[in-house]
Design a protein around this nucleic acid. Structure first.
Lengths: 246, 246
DNA sequence: GCGCACTACGTACGGTGTACGTAACTAGGA
DNA sequence: TCCTAGTTACGTACACCGTACGTAGTGCGC
């Protein structure tokens, strides 16, 4: 009806190759790999159309033949990283399988620290995302629940892993990007928090800081979180609130 | 020792006013309010130093007297929005109180759709964040658990709410920003997903789509998620996996 | 009253996404 | 077989971004 609209679709809906004209010099996989390489090495902010084009060895505007908008470049990156999930034959123990999935996701995000930031802005149904979803559903076959509930489980687990790693990375990043030494920064931080807490306005917070001084075991916290998520879907006998060592 | 370092601290650690020189024309609250106004009306990407300065009626570079880096502007925005949390006298029912907190957070994020995106890049201990934390801890007084566990509960609840709303907003945004009509977009989407699913590579996904066709009740899904999070911390009698209507 | 720390702000630089125009190329239909 | 339409390639240009830097004016503390 109206004149042709300007590339609004999800990139996965447009074919990679249409058949007419000269052969494309790159595949989407090439482009995604280049962008991922840059993001891993120099951070997400270094991923610009110019940079990626340079990495590929082509002119900036040539990239737009493959990737209509930068947003779509992100889509390619997330899909490429999602492709790194190793999928296995489900063991029959859905709990163990989902724990394994979650740990793998965490490792993947540590390997590609830009992933959490991109996850929320992305379509979510890229080819590799579908494959991943299907695999999770296969792992959940032994769980007696409606498929809607299973999808909710997967979404919740992924969401929790994403925010958890996001916090992990933010903390690490803040520590790394300092022109000061770690000690000085920590000192400033403690001085600020201490002054706030010591004001008496936050008694419970103060008590909590006192009680939990010292480094925390990120691994254990992660594990506990996963256990609690899965407990919410487990129809088996209740293991209690799993108080744990802390 | 080394020459003076360049403003690396968290903004909350530096005093708003030092006492010397002319009176500042604005407070941090003014600046935060201006930035929030812009972000609410035109989206987060419209929040630039130039825009905010114009909104305040001052030169661009004057802003840098108050806000050393743009990142700190984000910090101010999140703190300002966090200040919109209404805090109440805990009722003694920690479960109900935390549910209330979560619903309030969701509404707040719907009011300020840029919040989820900023939450993960922010220090997390701004004045209003501390007040909010203290309030949550107060609500959790009746819960018999170590304070570390309580903090984990709060973090997990906030995290889940954040990703949930994030997904809600992404979906809504995608629907809104289309140059096409909603129907056309949905058609394209279904055509793509259908073609993938019909390929037979994703049998469980296909079954799930068949089973769960039709619009989903976001409210109910949210509610269920909250229940499951809180269940993971509830030492009371087990209510079962709360199958719900779906 | 003096000096200095602070506010205010214009200019400028190097970066960004991308609209647009042009030239070369190749596959399909006549 | 040739023609032509659709693609690829890519340089130029524009508007906008964060912010380093320099300069001028202001008012508190000594």
């Amino acid at each position: 009806m109206a004149g042709r609209a300007a590339v609004p679709e999800v990139i996965w809906a447009r074919p990679e190759r249409t058949g007419r004209g000269p052969k494309p010099a790159f595949t989407r996989a090439d482009i995604a790999a280049a962008a991922v390489r840059i993001a891993d090495a120099q951070g997400l902010d270094a991923v610009s159309m110019r940079h990626v084009a340079a990495e590929l060895g082509c002119g900036t505007m040539s990239l737009y033949n493959y990737v209509p908008r930068k947003e779509d470049l992100y889509e390619l990156m997330v899909d490429a990283a999602s492709g790194e999930h190793e999928l296995w034959e489900p063991t029959g123990d859905w709990r163990a399988d989902m724990l394994h999935v979650a740990h793998q996701t965490r490792e993947l995000m540590h390997r590609h620290p830009w992933m959490p930031r991109l996850m929320s802005g992305v379509y979510g149904f890229s080819p590799n995302a579908l494959r991943y979803l299907e695999h999770c559903l296969a792992c959940l076959d032994p769980l007696d629940a409606p498929s809607g509930t299973k999808v909710e489980l997967i979404a919740m687990l992924n969401g929790c892993v994403t925010v958890y790693v996001s916090n992990e990375l933010a903390t690490a990043e803040r520590a790394r990007s300092l022109p000061w030494s770690q000690e000085q920064e920590t000192a400033v931080r403690i001085a600020y928090l201490g002054s706030q807490v010591a004001s008496g306005a936050y008694p419970r917070l103060a008590a909590s800081f006192m009680e939990d001084a010292g480094p925390i075991d990120l691994e254990a916290v992660f594990q506990r979180m996963l256990g609690r998520v899965l407990d919410g879907f487990d129809p088996g006998p209740r293991p209690g609130p799993r108080p744990g060592p802390r």
